[in-house]
Deep mutational scan, measured.
Amino acid sequence: CHSECLGNCSQPDDPTKCVACRNFYLDGRCVETCPPPYYHFQDWRCVNFSFCQDLHHKCKNSRRQGCHQYVIHNNKCIPECPSGYTMNSSNLLCTPCLGPCPKVCHLLEGEKTIDSVTSAQELRGCTVINGSLIINIRGGNNLAAELEANLGLIEEISGYLKIRRSYALVSLSFFRKLRLIRGETLEIGNYSFYALDNQNLRQLWDWSKHNLTITQGKLFFHYNPKLCLSEIHKMEEVSGTKGRQERNDIALKTNGDQASCENELLKFSYIRTSFDKILLRWEPYWPPDFRDLLGFMLFYKEAPYQNVTEFDGQDACGSNSWTVVDIDPPLRSNDPKSQNHPGWLMRGLKPWTQYAIFVKTLVTFSDERRTYGAKSDIIYVQTDATNPSVPLDPISVSNSSSQIILKWKPPSDPNGNITHYLVFWERQAEDSELFELDYCLKGLKLPSRTWSPPFESEDSQKHNQSEYEDSAGECCSCPKTDSQILKELEESSFRKTFEDYLHNVVFVPRKT
């Protein structure tokens, strides 16, 4: 048989008469490798580009789960590009990614509803959504962080984005990388972005840091009482949809009607710091009717980097990364020049730590249904340095008659930039024990000054392991946590139920 035959053949030295091919099969003959313009397919066939392209389009058009959109890589027609490569849609070739590779997620039936953290986790790592997304989240724990972890990498949506009755959302900033909504599939009414009845939605994105392009379709905003109209108009300008909307697409009466839409800028007039305090004062603000001013709200939190936005980490279910302080308005003076500047002394802060701070007014709604208010920009203030805590785990070892090696770990709280350490030492008198000992005694162990690591005695271990207080009263049991108490109650309830079950099964009433 021919060298490319495997198993047997019907005619000697003829690659077209093989029972099976050793390498690849091409047009009725066995070959060692697939010549151009053919590609290896499933490690035994040679196919042309049209064959591989037909497989790709067949799966793409069917949208069946589990099928493969075949691509070409290293002269092979394979189910998908290997790690580190992405497909070129024009020629199906796998090309190296520039940075992290995109991950295209194809949605069944063309859309997916995100109504819980669990459903959001199914899209973790996706960068391109081939379909439409509907966000409908009523509640949950730590929602802002969970949504950002699972949806934060999405850069492109081919269909539309719909935010509907998501009472738990305060902001859409968890879509931190969303840059493009194509609108290839539109919501009824030709809408590519749809926001309806979101009672706590206050911000779409921080438009000073976020760009969003909507290729096709219109915007729809109705019944978002805490979303200011200025935020919607800003989205029109940034996304390129200005002029597409009709009169009733953006409701003037049901958007922002319960919001404090600040239209003035508060400026800080005085800032002073110490290692654990920050004193702030800002310019006074009074609405047209000074009785509408209820006070100020001061927001602050630790910020290692200057990239904080107002609604980071917030949701309507209680999660809030900001510390909020309510401040009463100052006494009002008739003389504008003698107006008191409101302020606040922030206490209990960490030394040498940068804080993000902003302040906003708290006002009631005027009778004319106009909203007044003022808010400052987010500023960054760093507390002063102070003395560091003591170095940890000092170790001293003498390696000769004239040297001592000293080692330690950095302090747990540096409280500033540590530039150097101060080492103090003092000579001590020799131990009298060394002169009084009889060095001729056998088995004498000389006193040693070398360091030995501390260890816990058996008594201390027994005390720590004991669940009861000892007789001397030195140790006591740790208080039980809520989960331990709940577990004990469940076990007790189970024992009672099981005992009742045994009584009912074992003891049967005697027939009379």
Rank of each mutant, 00 (worst) to 15 (best):
T118V: 05
T113C: 15
M297P: 01
C126W: 01
N307P: 06
L280Y: 01
E310V: 02
A120H: 05
S166H: 04
R164H: 11
R247Q: 13
E368A: 10
A259K: 07
K162M: 15
F220S: 03
K112G: 03
G243V: 02
L293W: 05
K209A: 07
T383L: 03
S208W: 13
E122S: 11
L252G: 10
G140Q: 07
A145I: 04
G131V: 00
Q245N: 13
P388T: 00
L298N: 00
S260A: 07
D377R: 13
H222L: 11
I134H: 04
L107P: 12
S338H: 08
N150R: 04
K103P: 10
R138W: 05
N399D: 15
S401M: 06
P225R: 03
G240P: 03
G125W: 13
P288F: 11
R347I: 09
N141Y: 13
D206K: 13
L293S: 03
Y355R: 00
S239M: 15
L108K: 05
L298D: 00
K337L: 09
K337T: 12
T213G: 08
S119P: 06
S119F: 04
E187F: 12
T127R: 13
F221A: 10
Y300M: 13
N198E: 00
L123W: 05
S166D: 15
L266V: 07
P410H: 13
K177Q: 10
F358Y: 04
V325P: 00
S239P: 06
C228I: 03
L229A: 14
L196C: 02
D384G: 15
L180N: 11
D367A: 05
V325C: 02
L151H: 03
S166E: 03
T273Y: 13
P287F: 04
I379W: 06
L201D: 01
F268Q: 01
P329R: 14
D197S: 08
D292G: 03
W282E: 00
P330Q: 09
F174V: 07
N211W: 09
N150L: 09
Q245P: 14
F290R: 08
D115G: 07
F221Y: 15
S116D: 01
S398I: 05
H222I: 03
F296L: 10
R332V: 12
S389M: 13
R247L: 10
E236M: 06
G343R: 11
P225V: 13
K226Y: 10
E231M: 10
L169M: 06
I188M: 08
R179W: 12
Y285N: 05
S171G: 07
I379H: 10
F193K: 00
N263V: 06
R165M: 09
Y223W: 12
L161D: 00
N190M: 14
L169G: 04
T383Q: 00
Y160P: 02
